[in-house]
Write a protein that binds this DNA or RNA. Sequence first.
RNA 1: GUGGCUGUAGCUCAGUCGGUAGAGUCCCGGAUUGUGAUUCCGGUUGUCGCGGGUUCGAGCCCCGUCAGCCACCCCA
Length: 439
Amino acid sequence: MAVKGLQAVRGMNDIFPAEAAAWQALETDLRGLLQLYDYGEVRLPLLESTELFARAIGDVTDIVQKEMYTFADRNGDSLTLRPEGTAGCVRAAIQNQTMRGQTPRYYYMGPMFRHERPQKGRYRQFHQLGVEVFGQAGAGTDAEIIALSARILKQAGVQASLQINSLGSPEARAAYRERLLEYLRPQQEALCADCQTRMEHNPLRILDCKVPGCQQIASSAPHLVDHLDSESALHFASLQKLLTALDIPYQLNHSLVRGLDYYNRTVFEWVTDALGAQGTVLAGGRYDGLVAQLGGQDTPAIGFAVGLERLLALQEIQGNQACADKPVLFIGAMEDDSLARSWQLAEALRDLGISVVSGGPAGFKALLKQAERSRALFQLVIGLGQLQGEPVIIKEQCGEGRWEGSLEAVITGLQSLGVDFPKHAPHTGQNFATARRSK
RNA sequence: GUGGCUGUAGCUCAGUCGGUAGAGUCCCGGAUUGUGAUUCCGGUUGUCGCGGGUUCGAGCCCCGUCAGCCACCCCA
């Protein structure tokens, strides 16, 4: 229950250990994959000057117009919590001159902030893994990062399908925009109110409007890929050839236009219908003009971002989410006198790298309950008898295993047990009590 | 930013016509100092999201507000 007056800001979530285990496992997996492709981590500020995002993302986009957390610094500068990662990454690469004569491959993981109405798969603070490659103009790089994205989803055990499109050069896109408007104008009255507004500032978005009437009109619209400049057309053909060679299935989606202004040529999205209205899990594309636009030398670039909450939600739906590691041993002490001894033992075992949870002093039955709740693989109880030399009993909590010995032998005994517990134990939803009853 | 639904114990929920806030579960202790059955006994569970209004009296009706969920919009 929320304490009066003290609650998290809307759309911002607290993550507790049970859930954090899935996050950690996912992050570890992701870092491993990125290492396979030799991407290096960059850690960037969460806060940037507002101007950066306005210039990079585009003044007319919804993100800049209505979704940014913007406020004045103490000296009056306008600052913004990053709504996405690419702009900051490009800014950092320019500022630190890391692209001179280099073709760096970067990744970053962390929170992004957008002031939208929260719903399934959409939060005001959410987390992305972002990947950016600079200085590589060839379609091979497009194929590489799409292959990487495919591998990320596969590793995460997530089902999604790949859609691609090409936006061509800015000039070709501008020309296509005129062709599209010529096609739409006679039917303008039939479009929804939103799309009539879109005709003013972003007619390409009309192509993926959900209103049936608009879809009808869009379905017969001229295709962007038929109006590409020749270099972009070659680039796109080359990419498709590579995807086929890499055995990565894809769909050409003519209405895939991406929301942010900086994209050109290749755009792609991995989509699913398992997340309600938020179908995009991973999305990216080429943004060859952005580095120059932000004041750097003209440098081709490409990247993508994955929504970690969405990835985790899909993992949960598909039963692939990792669980927290279990402690190896629970040590319970029955009375104050045995408590000191049990703590000594616990510390000695931790010296050996064995995870231990301590409990007590408490009655015997209470200790067994504590042991069960600790999820430990083994449990032992120390009482006055053990202090006087009676044997200790180590018992396997889930199974039948049982081992007796002196207190001093427990340490070597535990080692001889060869404890090897799964890092990602399958989550059955069963506790030990129900597991026992079903035996 | 717009709309619909929902907020009662740690959890799942009931609460009739406006009349003393309940059940199950969980947790704790005991019957039972030594390896967890079952059962029984006892115990703690609360700003009814928050604020205001109507009323002799509000968990219930009205207004506002906050939060959650879902959709629009947008996007990862």
